[in-house]
């Protein structure tokens, strides 16, 4: 449990948000040409990193907008928050 600085609403309790999993997984441009392995990779396989991870969040009980976040999953510290479509501010 922690505070999240929503890029649209400011700092709010984490319980207002819902997590959308790993960020920057691109939807296949040509779905019909994907092999089963590639579909599995896109749909199910995750890095599930212990450490700094890029992820998507939604301010579900607020502005309902999606955004990205850089968070250390080993201590829940948030390093950066940035809007959808923006480049991650940290490598």
């Amino acid at each position: 449990m922690f505070l999240i600085n929503c890029p649209y609403c400011g700092e709010r309790d984490q319980s207002e948000f819902s997590a959308g999993g790993e960020a920057h997984i691109e939807r296949p441009k040509q779905p019909t040409e994907l092999s089963d392995d590639q579909w599995a990779e896109y749909l199910f396989m995750r890095k599930n990193i212990k450490g700094v991870q890029f992820e998507r969040w939604n301010h579900a009980h607020g502005c309902r907008k999606w955004f990205n976040m850089v968070r250390d999953t080993s201590n829940d510290k948030i390093h950066a928050v940035y809007k959808m479509g923006e480049k991650p501010p940290i490598k």
């Binding site: 999993g21 599995a40 990779e41 199910f44 396989m45 995750r46 890095k47 599930n48 990193i49 212990k50 999953t73």
Partner: peptide, 15 residues
């Protein structure tokens, strides 16, 4: 997943 990442294997897991 931490162990799997050591051999570049991705698993369908979330911890």
């Amino acid at each position: 997943s931490v162990i799997a990442n050591m051999v570049d294997l991705k698993l369908p897991l979330e911890s």
